[in-house]
């Protein structure tokens, strides 16, 4: 249960330790990619809690969403339309939904445990 959290901390640690710097014009893409990754992560957690977890869906969703989001942002830059807003909107809404579902599931689990 705590292994993914530990992984997140390790990732953060490595990210801050390494000296990788991305150019400012690409930081937009990375932010979209981070959003997509977070969305997928929370989607995975929700699926796990609802016992619907499928590894292939999770892993493919993770990479596909990142690439799609960055590609959309790239296309938007070249078309002159802020297409990354679409990605932010979609991922943001889904992120909230996923977190809400996770919260409810955890709440019901907690209350049922309490009643016992």
């Amino acid at each position: 249960m705590w292994l993914p959290v530990l992984g997140l901390i390790i990732g953060l640690f490595f990210g801050f330790m390494t000296d990788i710097k991305i150019p400012e014009e690409y930081s937009n893409y990375l932010s979209i990619a981070v959003l997509a990754a977070l969305d997928t992560l929370f989607g995975g957690i929700r699926a796990h809690l609802q016992d619907m977890y499928d590894e292939m869906v999770f892993v493919s969703g993770f990479f596909f969403n990142i690439i799609l989001a960055a590609g959309l942002a790239f296309l938007g830059v070249h078309l002159g339309v802020d297409l990354y807003l679409a990605a932010i909107f979609a991922f943001g809404v889904r992120l909230f939904q996923n977190i809400a579902v996770i919260r409810r599931i955890l709440l019901t689990k907690w209350t049922s445990k309490k009643e016992k």
Partner: peptide
């Protein structure tokens, strides 16, 4: 996946 996410967030 969470390591990757953490890495991206840090960068």
């Amino acid at each position: 996946i969470s390591i990757l996410v953490g890495f991206m967030i840090a960068i």
